[in-house]
């Protein structure tokens, strides 16, 4: 039986290259999540305001994110805006913009949900104890909000990491692309390398996302 390509990965720096491709995905996710959390908190607080215009804008924004595939958004930013505005945008920047756009919407909705889910009685009983408005938020409301948000934000990280696999479509060299290159380079010596390489990529993604999503489930149960 011919080799199934695992040996190809053990040759030279192939496996390291694959891992560095995966790191691209993780890096983009982490940057985007950080941006999303910052913007999301602001947006979530704005969303609880009663301003009609703001509410309509946020509704449309959320609906766009809800139904437009991230791939379409990537194309619009990477191919569309460069065309319209004539600027130069690296594919990594385009990816970070799109994932932050998406993440901010999700985080904003989470923050809003967390804020309105705190019962009014919590504010009232804190005030009844004579706490100042600042302390009400600092010691009573925010700790509860953050508790509810952390598991969900962690969950967002895994979804981002999974979605970053799309960036190969706008020309970024990430793990799938590296995989293709390795398969291509070894086509003559191991024609079946595709099996081993893509199986390993499959497993690598799982090994990264699974522990993170377990963590999020665990935290959610613990802090529920």
């Amino acid at each position: 039986m011919q080799s199934l390509g695992i040996d190809v990965l053990l040759r030279g720096t192939n496996f390291l290259r694959l891992l560095s491709g995966l790191w691209v995905a993780v890096r983009i996710s982490l940057i985007s999540v950080a941006i999303s959390i910052a913007f999301g908190i602001v947006m979530g607080m704005l969303m609880t305001s009663k301003n009609r215009i703001l509410q309509v804008i946020f509704r449309i924004y959320l609906e766009i994110v809800r139904i437009m595939p991230q791939m379409v958004l990537l194309f619009i930013v990477y191919f569309g805006t460069t065309r319209v505005f004539g600027w130069n945008l690296s594919s990594e920047k385009a990816a970070v913009i799109v994932f932050s756009f998406w993440g901010t919407a999700e985080m904003g909705d989470l923050v809003r949900g967390a804020l309105i889910s705190i019962p009014k009685i919590q504010y009232e009983s804190a005030r009844a104890l004579g706490m100042k408005e600042k302390d009400v938020y600092l010691y009573v409301i925010l700790p509860q909000t953050i508790r509810r948000m952390i598991p969900l934000s962690i969950n967002l990280i895994t979804r981002m990491i999974k979605t970053t696999s799309l960036v190969m479509m706008i020309g970024m060299v990430e793990v799938l692309k590296v995989g293709q290159q390795i398969i291509e380079a070894n086509r003559r010596t191991s024609p079946n390398a595709a099996f081993g390489v893509f199986a390993v990529v499959f497993i690598l993604y799982f090994l990264i996302c699974w522990p993170i999503s377990r963590l999020s489930v665990w935290l959610e149960k613990r802090w529920a």
Binding site: K162, Y205, F206
Partner: peptide, 12 residues
Amino acid sequence: FRNTPLLVQLFF
């Protein structure tokens, strides 16, 4: 399957 991207699954 919940912890891997569809793109990677399709490649496989």
